[in-house]
Nucleic acid binder design. Sequence first.
RNA 1: GGCGCCGUGGCCAAGUGGUAAGGCAAGGGUCUGCAAAAUCCUCACCGCCGGUUCGAGUCCGGCCGGCGCCUCCA
Length: 455
Amino acid sequence: MSVRLLDTLTGTLQELPPAPYEVKLYVCGITPYSSSHIGHAVPIIVFDALVRYLRYRGYAVRHVTNFTDIDDKLIAAAEAQNTTVKALADKFSDQYLGSLKRLNARPADVYPRATEEISRIVEITQGLIERGYAYESEGDVYYRVRKKDDYGKLSHRKIDDLKSGARIDPTERKEDPLDFALWKGAKPGEPSWDSPFGPGRPGWHIECSAMSYGHLGEQIDIHGGGADLIFPHHENEIAQTEGFTGKAPFAKVWMHNALLQMDSDKMSKSTGNVVDLDAVIDRWGADAIRLFILSSHYRSPLTYSEEALQAAGRGAERMRAAAFATPSGTIPGPDVSGLREQFEGHMDDDLGTAEAIAVLFDLVRLINRERDAGHDTRAMQELLRELAGVLGFGLEAAHGGSRDADPFIDLLVQVRTEMRAAKQWAFSDQIRDGLKELGVELKDSAEGTIWIVSP
RNA sequence: GGCGCCGUGGCCAAGUGGUAAGGCAAGGGUCUGCAAAAUCCUCACCGCCGGUUCGAGUCCGGCCGGCGCCUCCA
């Protein structure tokens, strides 16, 4: 069986061509105008798991993720903070990449920025004008939505259903309220670039058409992003790209992750109802977040809660402990190659990470059981580490805050070990209890004492 | 108003026709100086009502209850 992914546009499972094959993947990135929140971790982790799995399956993957480093929000934020759009965008782009790294996600192969793709944006805009899909209007350029007779196919909307909800902005000079801007004429004080349509800047959706076209070509395999981008962003991208190239489909598979919910309220930058991503990583660790997110299907909405993260943190620690427990025996353990096949079967089926993780925990239990029985668990542990790695688990001990205290903790543990050897139970328990109150948990075993920091 | 999604054990969450994965928590046993960890055992009438079927959490209809998108958002 090969890898199958559900396509938002057709609603059907699409099979990837058999490997070896280069998968062209475009994942919509962020507009870097503020800090990342926990919701951003979802696409980061989901698409990281996808890329890792495809590579594990023998595919080459060319992964492109953009930064939309020019738009209204960025201009407003720069003005409010008395800085430049570029400085602000660079700052939050770097921050995003830092968080991504901390989440143990592999970076994309290319991170194009809208402001570095202006010539291609102009090229596509011009092409759309020539083909009748766009028109100039007093320095702006708009996409003529009604010209594209399949407009709405991705979000499954009829153009006339959209009309009642369309935004009417009196400053815009459109033929139809549904038309959207490809190019916005410059306003005083705003960053702008020269173009055949006059000085200005790109509209919101055109940059992604330009960057996927420029870095991946006219047609791509997978286009991904959050479900909130289906309309209007991706709908408009299709209209732009297919209108420009005359080729369809723009993407063979449209892959959309469901959005993370915040208890009852929607998490959204616009409402301020957000949880800072780096703070969550600090507190729970990358693997806990990853386990939390990949424990459900990427198309099912998840609700963020401290309880859920805590539960995931404990599960991640259990997985890590089994992966690195010292093998205890030499009697051969059972053959576990069937578990690898199960894992692949679930992942092949539209990235069934939840079931794949269940297989991992089956392996965990098997390892612990066989180890207790004095069997050789090395092969199973290797398999666990490999498959956990395919999902992007770093299997590092959760470790909040700085590690400055480590040598002192080690010293205390060492002292306690000697006390235990001398059967000084009261003193050794005092050390253990005291450390526990400070958030350091000790675990004694035949191989010695290990300690972990509990979140 | 238009389009769409969801409702599975204390919590989270898989599962699209054949008598319910997994994680966390809880209770009991084993192990351990004690503890933790580990392991074993226990714990679900799948929102409600009809229908289709030999058989439905899984398909169809209705109802109730949550929610998303339609506007910046991953």
